[in-house]
Amino acid sequence: MQGSQKVIDLLNKQLTLELSSMDQYLAHSKMYEDWGLSRLHHKLAHEYEEELDHAKRITERILFLEGTPDTASRAPIKVGENVQEMLENDLAAEITVKDHLKKVIAVCEEEQDYVSREMLEALLDDTEMDHIYWLEQHIGLIKLIGLPNYIQSQMSGGDPT
């Protein structure tokens, strides 16, 4: 089914953002693993998988709309040098993803592409309610208990939430 080129172009931009976030989560996850921060490693590995799922869903939609998915492009990623910087960089990336999702959703509505809109709304829910909420919560924990105590709390292999 031939889709709106405007929607396809914006979906490709969203795909770039999702893949870029995925790359950043991978780097941070592996850094946490190397530093012995098991809980953060497992959480970020999970976020990597979710971003991969988002990218797959967007790719499938672009193909359905008879577009060509751009799986090579990436936005610049910001790999942090310490735990707080890494969390803040991940939050900034997720806010960029959220803002662009809202833009694409609005264009899908204008172009009457309700299926793409619905898919993107599910991604927006995941981005806001899982990714952003968790990052804001953990940055808040650093402010509440201090960075050394936060880091210590992330060393065990238990549930990262």
Rank of each mutant, 00 (worst) to 15 (best):
L19Y: 00
L37D: 02
E136D: 12
Y48I: 01
T59Y: 12
Q5H: 14
E51F: 06
E18S: 00
P148H: 10
Q154R: 15
I151T: 07
N82Q: 09
E33V: 05
H138T: 02
E33G: 13
Q2T: 14
V104S: 07
S156Y: 06
K103T: 14
G67P: 06
L17D: 00
G158N: 06
E18W: 02
D70G: 02
T59C: 08
D23N: 11
E18A: 02
D126S: 08
M129G: 06
I77T: 15
E136C: 10
I132K: 11
W35K: 00
K102R: 15
G140D: 10
M86P: 02
L91V: 07
G67E: 10
G140M: 09
K102L: 13
L65N: 02
E49G: 04
L141K: 15
C108T: 03
D113A: 01
E51H: 08
L65H: 03
N149C: 08
H41F: 15
H46G: 04
S20L: 12
A75K: 13
A122C: 09
I77V: 15
Y32R: 09
N149V: 12
E51C: 06
H28A: 04
M119T: 11
E47N: 04
E66K: 14
I151K: 08
N149D: 13
L17I: 04
D99E: 15
L40Y: 10
A72W: 08
Q84W: 03
I62P: 02
S4G: 01
A75I: 08
E109F: 05
L26V: 10
E128P: 00
Q5M: 11
L17E: 07
A122F: 05
H100V: 04
A27G: 00
Y114F: 12
L123R: 05
R74W: 02
L63H: 09
I145H: 10
P148C: 00
M155P: 08
L26H: 10
E50L: 01
S29P: 02
F64H: 13
R117I: 01
S38Y: 13
S21V: 02
S20R: 07
M129P: 00
K103C: 01
I105G: 06
Y133L: 12
A92L: 04
E85D: 07
E50G: 04
A72M: 12
D99R: 09
L52W: 08
R57K: 15
L144G: 07
V97E: 04
M129K: 14
G140V: 04
S4F: 14
H131R: 06
I105L: 09
S116M: 09
G146A: 13
L144N: 15
T71F: 07
